[in-house]
């Protein structure tokens, strides 16, 4: 079943055309890794998927519902799409528990007791239930990013977007975050990740999408794509990053 459908999406910043007609469909439970050089449009595509950037033309649907301000409220959007950022973006003045509980209470209007129960569950899932009352500044980068994942999970989205979630981490902390994502993938969560972790893309993704100059240049199962790239651009990219 197709969960996310991107149909001929264009996006320009002024004169700079960043997305030149993207077509992509992601099935329920699928893990899609988007790779490509910086400036190829991968982050912009991801940000269009939760409307942090509004696309200029084309259509994006999630669970058959059109994703634009007219047809989907911010609340509804957040119940469909969760996002984890490169720079964590935890709320520094709120404890880990408060970070996780805030949106379900404020946006969904759920009861505090119910939300706290969910918060404990999602924090358990990312292995941080003992940090419930800590402030973000007291955590390592890897722990902060895991809290950010838990915070997104607490809204129970249908699809999670991960924008280079390990790029701001010290190398020894990357593994703990990737392991959490692996668990989510194994549990059937639909994931779309922009990543520079090629080994992770190869091991965990069902499909790898290579973006080049605002277009999807090549896509396929990770095994084939990395072993036998068809285009010169992907060959060059792979030899540069591996």
């Amino acid at each position: 079943m197709t969960l996310v459908c991107v149909d001929n999406v264009h996006k320009a910043f002024g004169d700079l055309e960043v997305l030149k007609g993207i077509n992509l469909s992601v099935a329920q439970g699928e893990v899609v890794a988007i790779i490509g050089r910086s400036g190829s449009g991968k982050s912009t595509l991801l940000r269009c998927l939760n409307q942090l950037e509004k696309h200029d033309s084309g259509q994006i649907t999630i669970a058959d519902k059109k994703l634009d301000a007219a047809s989907m409220s911010p609340k509804e959007l957040s119940e469909n799409v969760g996002m984890v950022f490169q720079s964590f973006n935890l709320f520094p003045h709120k404890t880990v528990g408060e970070n996780v509980c805030l949106a379900p209470i404020v946006v969904r209007g759920e009861g505090k007791a119910d939300v706290e129960k969910i918060a404990h569950e999602v924090l358990e899932k990312v292995g941080l239930s003992d940090k419930y009352d800590a402030y973000p500044a007291q955590l390592s980068g890897g722990q902060q990013q895991r809290v950010a994942i838990a915070r997104a999970l607490a809204m129970r989205p249908k699809v999670m977007l991960c924008d280079e979630v390990t790029s701001a981490l010290d190398p020894e902390l990357v593994g703990e975050v990737l392991r959490v994502l692996e668990t989510l993938a194994a549990e059937g969560m639909t994931l779309i990740l922009v990543t520079h972790e090629m080994s992770f893309a190869r091991d965990v993704a069902d499909r790898v999408v290579f973006m080049h100059e605002g277009r999807i240049h090549e896509e396929g199962a990770p095994g084939e794509l990395f072993a036998a790239p068809q285009t010169a651009e992907l060959k060059q990219f792979i030899s540069a990053v591996l």
Partner: peptide
Amino acid sequence: EAGRALGM
């Protein structure tokens, strides 16, 4: 942006 992504 984090607030917006959470639906606020």
